[in-house]
Amino acid sequence: MTDRALAVVRAGGLTTVQDQGRPGHAHLGVPRSGALDAPAAALANRLVGNPPGAAVLETTLNGCAVRPRSTVTVAVAGAPCRVTVDARPVAWGAPVRVPAGAVLDVGAAVRGVRSYVAVSGGIAVEPVLGSRSTDLLSGLGPPPLTDGAVLSLGRVVGPHARVDVAPQPAPPAELVLRVTLGPRDDWFTPDAVRTFTSRTYRVSAAGNRIGLRTEGPSLERARAGELPSEGVVLGAVQVPPDGRPVVFLADHPTTGGYPVLAVVRAADLPAAAQAVPGTPVRFVAVRRR
């Protein structure tokens, strides 16, 4: 078979196409988007011989199943899960051959939230502003997967990696997020800043690709009134009126009107993408580099 495509057998709760996103358009109101656990997506691509910018599938908690129309190499990284090909267990975190017509099933995450499924050649949906990423905030990019959908695959450009199982960080039992305070820490009382950097929060089930929501002590503002809308960055910790910090992830709005108390180090965001609801979260203040 030469038909390079994948049929979606089981879309899962929320499976999207993701690559490295579309940074550079924030001034037009376009979120950056892209894989939330970028190192896991990059590893999955590397395992199947794709370039780092190839599009992969990002699952959410309960995996997905696809049927390639031609024989492909796949690799599943990120949240550990049971992976099968036609119901036979195969390796997670390693290149796996899936014959044409066989069903690759990426099971529910055993730990963590998001698994990444790279397919040799990459998912080749039509790019929008240079990216194939689904952006859940603005609706740019392909829609989330649905049962029966068919996704084109790109041309294979390289051999898959010669590894048995690639090492990966475990999803966090406790999420420790290093933050630098500001730019709007002066909108909060000193007590609120102390609370933020010393108490334990928990990951809320209400989070999504736009933001990691938290539950925990409410942070009191030092000043009333509204902040005029201003640009926000990936990892910004915004505090809405309920006082519970929200960490902005890849699909975050490009401007916001709630004060940003701190910014999470970029290196800590992949772990945030894998923290299941209920995971304890600590924000640790660090010096700016």
Binding site: P23, G24, A26, H27, P228, E230, G231, V232, V233, T255
Partner: peptide, 15 residues
């Protein structure tokens, strides 16, 4: 700079 994002009273320089 990767992003220059103007807003109501600010300009953000990111990247």
């Amino acid at each position: 700079v990767r992003e220059i994002v103007p807003a109501a009273r600010t300009v953000l320089l990111d990247g």
